[in-house]
């Protein structure tokens, strides 16, 4: 049985679905674990969930200014948060986030409606700093027509850049309820819509999340040793 992770899921307190319910559904769908990454401007973000091994605690930093972003990254990096994502979309925020190697994931770099862009400079930073570029499935699932076309075009472009500079792509559902989750095979099929090959999609669901989580485990172990 392969090991799959969904590292961008929003749950209670940001939405009204408890993390355990999310995990149960995700397990049913064939995931090994999920990461709850609530936006940090909502209440109770980054709080440690109950000690379950398959739920990782993350945070998605949403801000409009670079200095604020820097301050919050510093705050969360020193605390017990296992995964730091940044709410992308704005080009300045994308750049500031990708320059910082303390971040794990740049969430939806093309914005929620496909308004943001990535360029080769940004993706090169991502590859150097080991930051995963997210391809969020909810944008494709929930939008139709013009919006979806724009998002698919952006994702197509991003994928080309990611391949060229060998950055890490990651597939996530970005789900806000259990109905937003999709099983790994469905995610792979949807990823094929913007040209992602099967092997790439499997790596984006399995190898990339594992490497992100291992990086964090190593850090925790270091802290314990000290």
């Amino acid at each position: 049985m392969p090991i799959f992770f969904d590292l961008n899921v929003h749950a209670y307190p940001e939405t009204d679905v408890p993390a355990e319910v999310m995990l149960r559904t995700a397990r049913n769908y064939g995931y090994t674990g999920i990461a709850i990454t609530n936006h940090d401007d909502c209440m109770g973000a980054g709080e440690r969930q109950e000690k379950t091994h398959s739920i990782y605690t993350g945070v998605e930093i949403r801000t409009k200014s670079e200095s604020e972003l820097n301050r919050r990254i510093k705050h969360y990096y020193s605390s017990k948060v296992q995964l730091i994502a940044v709410h992308g979309g704005d080009e300045r925020i994308n750049l500031a986030a990708l320059k910082d190697n303390r971040i794990d994931i740049l969430a939806h770099p093309c914005g929620e409606k496909g308004e943001g862009t990535l360029n080769r400079v940004l993706v090169r930073y991502a590859a150097e700093n080991g930051i995963a570029i997210e391809f969020n499935m909810n944008a494709i699932i929930n939008n139709r027509r013009g919006d979806r076309t724009r998002i698919l075009t952006r994702m197509h472009d991003n994928l080309k850049l990611v391949r060229k500079y060998r950055a890490m792509p990651i597939l996530t559902s970005n789900a806000c309820s259990i109905y937003g989750l999709r099983a790994p095979r469905e995610m792979i099929a949807v990823a094929a819509l913007f040209g992602m090959r099967r092997e790439e999609a499997v790596a984006a669901l399995r190898d990339v999340p594992l490497s992100i989580l291992e990086k964090r485990w190593d850090k925790e172990r270091e802290v314990e040793l000290l």
């Binding site: 494709i140 699932i141 099983a183």
Partner: peptide, 23 residues
């Protein structure tokens, strides 16, 4: 099959109720 699977995955609501389809 994969095309239909993607299309099924893209169904997000039925008559106003949120749904998720899994093959």
């Amino acid at each position: 099959v994969d095309e239909l699977r993607a299309a099924l995955a893209c169904v997000h609501s039925v008559g106003g109720a949120k749904v998720g389809i899994r093959v």
